[in-house]
Every structure is written in C-alpha cells, then in structure tokens.
C-alpha cells in the first residue's frame, strides 16, 4: 500500500498561501508570464448554481502533459489544486469552491513548458469562504 508521505516536502505550501493573483503563479511556477493555449479544454458551468460545488473537467490536448493546476482568481486562497501526472494522461475532473464570480485559470505543464487557459464562471448566491 502506498500512502502519502506526511512530510514529503512536495506540497506547494507557498502557492497555497499566496493571496494575490500574480504572486500565486510566481510561487507555484516560478513565473507569472504564461502563454495561452486553446488546446486546454475547460468544461465548467457558465453560471454556477452552487458556489460550493462547481464541477470542472479539464482536458489537455497538449502532448506530454506533466501536470495540471487549477487556480481560482477570486478565492481568498486562489491556488486550488495541483495534479502531477506520471503516465500519458490528459484528463482530470473534480469539484471546486468559488467564493465569487471570477476566472478559473488552468495551468498545464507539457514537455516542460507552461501553458494556460481560463474560463469565467459566474456565481450566484451561497458563496463560501474558500
């Protein structure tokens, strides 16, 4: 059985603690200058009916996708999730919280290069404290 190591040191603590938008990218990826790519497909509702459960599906059309990161610009801690992929994988889906209407930014690392794409998601009532 493989368990997560409690102190693996791999957890990007600084990225999760960063509060403002360009800082988050700098802490997480070392740069805030990331090129856009339409090959990152983001499937998410235009208007989230429940801000606490916003389903997102990410499909990366980029060859050799190594990691997928989700960043919600409007949240108090914008860095949401970071998926490291070790095989030929290109799809990840989960459910996220959004405290306000904002952009969902998806950063994909493929062949060592960072690419980003974003989608605005509108949020109704029931916002949360994330």
């Amino acid at each position: 059985m493989i368990l997560p190591r409690a102190a693996s040191g791999a957890y990007p603590t600084k990225a999760f603690l960063a509060k403002e938008m360009p800082d988050v990218l700098r802490e997480a990826f070392g740069t805030s200058d990331i090129g856009e790519s339409e090959q990152i497909e983001i499937e998410a509702p235009h208007i989230a009916s429940d801000a606490n459960i916003v389903p997102v599906r990410i499909k990366s059309g980029l060859a050799n996708t190594e990691s997928i990161a989700l960043v919600v610009a409007g949240n108090k801690s914008p860095f949401t999730a970071y998926f490291k992929l070790y095989e030929s994988q290109s799809f990840v889906s989960t459910r996220i919280r959004m405290s306000d209407t904002s952009d969902l930014l998806v950063v994909v690392k493929a062949d060592g290069v960072l690419y980003a794409n974003s989608r605005p998601i509108r949020v109704g009532r029931n916002s949360c404290g994330a």
Partner: peptide, 11 residues
Amino acid sequence: VMEAFWGKSIS
C-alpha cells in the same frame, strides 16, 4: 500514476 495536492477550495 498521479499525485494531487489540494487546498481549501476543493469542495
């Protein structure tokens, strides 16, 4: 095959 790091913004 996959390692995921999550924050508080996951539902």
